[in-house]
Nucleic acid binder design. Structure first.
Length: 424
RNA sequence: GGAGAGGUGGCAGAGUGGCCGAUUGCGGCGGCUUGCUAAGCCGUUGUAGGCCUUACCGGCUUACCCUGGGUUCGAAUCCCAGCCUCUCCGCCA
């Protein structure tokens, strides 16, 4: 959420930003609600002030007659206050509801554009591998090697669920451990997080837990939802706190659950778009001065991880329309997936965002600036270290051999304990 | 799951209907004292919203004593519900 005062005093900038981001907002209505809110607060404050005054002039030993008058006056104030408070509540709920739909400001260097084609490719590492045979996709490989079982997943849990089996299980754990070790050596504090979180936390991070196009599964009657990413739990971890030392770097392991509502029609074979996967996530609380450069650091870590896995990738600077609500700037990493499309395609495997103070404002995460009295909101950043399901696609498809077996990249072998997955 | 105790400012800990945004101690900050240190003395010290003023400083006001309701002219204080913590018992991966 943006700062209300900032929005009100920079209407033109906000309007332009909303347009760039393809977000709808009615700033005139917002302004009208905001002045109504100020008026109602002033009114309630004044009523409460008089109420206090009346209360104080009470006391135990005053004449009955005067007491009766005070009671009368007090009751009147109470009723007036109740109606003002009710009106204020309704005004605030529409005002803040509206404010929450306004997306974050945008980094001046982020490309302006309305669709994926407007994302800017920043750099590429490696080239798509050349196979002397027709490469298989991961669904075929996974089934052949008996390491992924989609049919059982569908029977037990429904479409877009899966079982990992045999070396597939070990591969998942190896990727997780590999990523955790990488983060640990980068100074991240490791966490394994809850897989469910309170709806208010989801909301603060910018996920809407309810509603028709929600991306998250909710637990009936509990006020809890299955998390779509550990960004939610890691960001919630320090909510309502005043931090002393920045940056705070957390590396979180969790399962991620997504409904993928509205994702019909997009290329989504096999593991690419599933309802549940395991992910190691980076989350950083930083000062406003640090956040730009930390975003670059996060991307560099992602690149080292995929570089070590010997997977060709490219980094894209996401355009305004693709940023989502909270991100100020976002870099996606796309890995080459030889089995995707007819001749292979780039597919998103990680994503790193700087959300500036957009999430921190709602989650009330501040820090003390030693130079300054008072507190300021921190900046939050997040980035994927390894999203296991998509990493498995990239590993299997890039390292496949003609007979269907898969060679394990050297960096991963200490974690798997085997150097290839043979065809059975 | 059952029984008890409790949740107050950075921390400790008073406060059982109006004099309480809250005694006091510690800590923090500023100053005095001091050859240095220790000690002592004086002062100061929460967060957020609204209005006004504004280059800056600031002024007025409201809210916040776990959360949400209620009683009352008036609630940290009384009542109800919930959450959390601690102790004991039971159950369990």
């Amino acid at each position: 959420m943006l700062d209300l005062k900032y929005v009100l005093s920079n209407l033109e900038e906000i309007g332009k930003n909303c347009a760039n981001r393809r977000a709808r907002c009615d700033l005139a209505a917002l302004g009208a609600l905001a002045s109504k809110r100020s008026m109602l607060i002033a009114k309630s404050d004044e009523l409460r002030r008089r109420q206090k005054e009346v209360g104080k002039s009470g006391g135990p030993a005053i004449p009955e007659e005067r007491k009766a008058m005070l009671k009368e006056e007090g009751r009147r104030l109470r009723d007036e206050l109740a109606s003002a408070a009710a009106e204020l509540e309704s005004v605030e709920s529409s005002l803040f509801g509206m404010l929450r739909t306004i997306p974050n400001l945008t980094h001046p260097a982020a490309p302006v554009g309305g669709s994926e084609e407007d994302n800017r490719v920043v750099r590429q590492s490696g080239n798509p591998p050349r196979f002397s045979f027709k490469p298989r996709d991961h669904v075929e490989i996974g089934t052949m090697l008996d390491i992924i079982d989609f049919d059982s997943g569908t029977r037990v849990s429904g479409k877009n669920f899966y079982f990992l089996k045999n070396q597939g299980v070990i591969l998942e754990l190896a990727l997780v451990r590999f990523a955790l070790d990488a983060l640990s050596s980068e100074g991240f504090e490791l966490c394994s997080t809850p897989d469910l979180a309170k709806d208010e936390i989801l909301d603060g991070i910018g996920f809407s837990p309810r509603g028709p196009e929600t991306q998250v599964f909710s637990v009936e009657g509990m006020g809890l939802s299955l998390i779509g990413t550990a960004e939610i739990t890691l960001g919630g971890m320090l909510s309502d706190r005043i931090l002393q030392k920045l940056p705070v770097k957390l590396g979180g392991l969790s399962h991620c659950f997504r409904t993928e509502a509205g994702a019909y029609g997009k290329a989504s074979k096999g593991l690419y778009r599933v309802h549940q996967f395991t992910k190691v996530e980076m989350f950083v609380y930083a000062s406003p001065e640090q956040s730009d450069s930390i975003l670059e650091d996060l991307v560099a870590i992602e690149e080292r991880i995929f570089g070590s896995l010997e997977i060709p990738y490219r980094i894209v600077d996401c355009c305004t329309a693709e940023l989502g609500g909270p991100a100020y700037r976002k870099y996606d990493m796309e890995a080459w997936m030889p089995g995707r499309g007819s001749e292979g395609e780039w597919g998103e495997v990680t994503s790193a965002s700087n959300c500036t103070n957009y999430q921190a404002r709602r989650l009330k995460i501040r820090f003390k600036d030693p130079g300054d009295k008072g507190t300021r909101f921190v900046h939050t950043l997040n980035g994927t270290a390894v999203a296991v399901s998509r990493a498995i696609i990239a590993v299997l498809e890039n390292h496949q051999r003609e007979d269907g077996s898969v060679s394990i990249p050297a960096a991963l072998r200490p974690y798997t304990g085997f150097d290839s997955i043979p065809h059975r």
